[in-house]
């Protein structure tokens, strides 16, 4: 059992190594012009240079900040609104059609609106990221709160639980799996929108770095930025899964 896990992990590393080797080979043999495709060696060198000079680090921090603030704002708003809408059937009936109308709206379409209203500012980026990543979270939370076992509310009534205790001890933990699933989806959306906003509004971040590198044909820098974005996506998703499996230990017992 243990060995097969180790074997698969080694195999997956071998695939990744193979891809990088192929990339190096293609670059060395100039299958694609080095203007467009740097080898992994040059991309790596550029990454290191970016970090030692501090330029790339500043951009990385910029993107992480945009993403984190937008996502946190969406999380707070999404959970609070979702709890209110989800726990009341009347609220669901009133609000659901509006949500259905807003949800499929591509967020990229509201960026010009946000720019017109808020200018090319950090506030605009925050608003766009929060708005875009709100939806999976809000819908997850609404579903989670709506699906709380009614019997548990009766248990709470029989025990005379105060309203706040019912929310924090019954509704919220019951909705937690749906909320966390929503938060994981939102995290991805937040990263995408952070990059898009940086590109469009010229805000300090990897999005801007990538765009400027591409325009200046600095392909090694471009690839360094893209690689870094990949790492952000991977590491944040990993952290989110770790938090999820820690918070939802009780679900592991069910299987």
């Amino acid at each position: 059992m243990r060995w097969s896990v180790l074997g698969w992990r080694l195999a997956s590393f071998a695939v990744a190594a193979g891809v990088i080797a192929l990339w190096q080979f293609a670059a060395d043999h100039r299958w694609i012009s080095p203007v467009f495709l740097p080898g992994p060696d040059r991309a790596w060198a550029s990454l290191m240079r970016g970090f030692t000079s501090g330029d790339l680090l500043a951009k990385l921090v910029g993107t992480l900040t945009h993403m984190a603030y937008g996502w946190l704002l969406a999380s707070i708003a999404g959970i609070a609104l979702g709890a209110m809408i989800g726990s009341s059937k009347t609220m669901r009936l009133y609000v659901a059609p509006t949500l259905e109308l807003l949800r499929p709206l591509p967020v990229s379409a509201i960026i010009p609106v946000a720019i017109a209203a808020l200018g090319l500012s950090q506030g605009m980026a925050l608003a766009v990221i929060a708005f875009g990543s709100l939806w999976p979270l809000l819908l997850g939370t609404i579903h989670g709160f709506a699906a709380v076992e009614p019997r548990l509310y009766e248990v709470a009534r029989v025990l005379h639980m105060p309203r706040l205790a019912v929310i924090f001890k019954i509704a919220l933990p019951s909705a937690a799996p749906d909320i966390l699933a929503g938060m994981r989806l939102s995290l991805t959306v937040a990263l995408i929108l952070a990059v898009v906003c940086e590109m469009l509004a010229g805000l300090d971040g990897l999005g801007q770095w990538v765009l400027l590198s591409a325009r200046a044909f600095r392909s090694a820098d471009l690839f360094a930025g893209v690689m870094l974005l990949g790492v952000i996506g991977y590491v944040t998703a990993l952290a989110m899964s770790a938090a999820e499996s820690r918070l939802l230990r009780w679900q592991a017992a069910r299987r």
């Binding site: 076992e149 019997r151 548990l152 009766e154 248990v155 019954i170 933990p173 019951s174």
Partner: peptide, 12 residues
């Protein structure tokens, strides 16, 4: 309650 599976908190 009859349905103990629903009356207990699965996360506790």
């Amino acid at each position: 309650f009859q349905d103990y599976g629903k009356a207990l908190l699965p996360w506790r």
